[in-house]
């Protein structure tokens, strides 16, 4: 059974539908990238999946006993106030909270996991710094570490690499790929179409209507992709032949 499955799903704000007739499923171990232009409803879809806002219609089914406390989430924007006193470490370890039940303190295993994830993202030496005094990219890494702390099964990332420098972006993709190979299911919103094609197993392309859902190699052959690439003026078209050749030879 699929981890997440939608049937004729629609979402929007206050009676105003943004995306409708959405049918897709995420199976365990998948790496789904959601692409689409600005304002097409990608973040809204993430929030609806997470139950932060209610759906407009259709069905959303969680399978395989997926519980909310097995989900890690990286929001596109956080509404943290300008003057919130919190150290980077406090923010990261708050991701572990969803598995501590009623127990009032963090266990040494949770502390270990916070430290491990901070090391993974290279922010160990920022631990004691005030979160709001970090740079945008550093804050993004702190929030990513928090998301990693929270997830054991499913990681939902809304533009995880925005604001990161090229080196960290590359490391980020490797970390996500590594997690995916360890069995963590990834759902990721991205504008980085090149990386999406390279890493994802499935692509969902939305733009008011769902334009495409399927395996990455099929996406590369679709008209949606060709149109999207031509308009976005990237020279990705050049990378199609070797990619699809490779897939066909398999």
């Amino acid at each position: 059974m699929a981890l997440i499955k939608t049937e004729n799903f629609s979402l929007g704000y206050e009676g105003h539908v943004i995306v409708e007739d959405l049918n897709f499923e995420v199976n365990e171990g998948d790496y789904l990238c959601i692409v689409g232009e600005n304002g097409s409803g990608k973040s809204t879809l993430m929030k609806t999946l997470l139950g932060l806002k209610s759906k407009m219609g259709g069905a959303l089914i969680f399978g395989n006993g997926l519980r909310k406390n097995q989900i890690g989430y990286l929001p596109q924007q956080t509404l943290t106030q300008r003057d919130f006193p919190a150290s980077a470490y406090e923010v990261v370890i708050s991701g572990c909270l969803n598995r501590s039940g009623l127990f009032p303190f963090y266990s040494s295993r949770q502390k270990e996991s916070a430290r491990y994830n901070m090391k993974l993202l290279g922010i160990t030496d920022l631990a004691g710094r005030c979160y709001r005094e970090l740079s945008g990219g550093q804050q993004q890494r702190v929030l990513l570490a928090r998301a990693l702390c929270a997830s054991s099964k499913l990681l939902i990332l809304d533009e995880p690499v925005s604001g990161l420098d090229p080196k960290v972006t590359q490391e980020m993709y490797s970390i996500i790929e590594h997690l995916n190979s360890c069995g963590v299911t990834i759902v990721m919103v991205s504008h980085d179409i090149e990386a999406s094609i390279k890493y994802a197993s499935h692509i969902l392309h939305i733009s008011h209507k769902p334009l495409f859902f399927g395996r990455t190699e099929d996406y590369l052959k679709s008209d949606v992709f060709k149109v999207f690439c031509n308009t976005s003026k990237t020279d990705i078209a050049a990378m199609i032949p070797p990619q699809s050749d490779g897939k066909e030879n398999n």
């Binding site: 929030k47 997470l50 139950g51 932060l52 519980r67 909310k68 406390n69 097995q70 989900i71 890690g72 989430y73 929001p75 956080t78 509404l79 943290t80 919130f84 919190a86 406090e90 923010v91 708050s94 991701g95 909270l97 969803n98 501590s100 009032p104 303190f105 963090y106 928090r146 929270a150 997830s151 939902i156």
Partner: peptide, 23 residues
Amino acid sequence: FIFFYHKIFAVTFDENFATATGT
């Protein structure tokens, strides 16, 4: 307050994240 200290922090810092991840 002492018993729910960490939860109060999480809910105060980022309510959406807390809700999304099952708190």
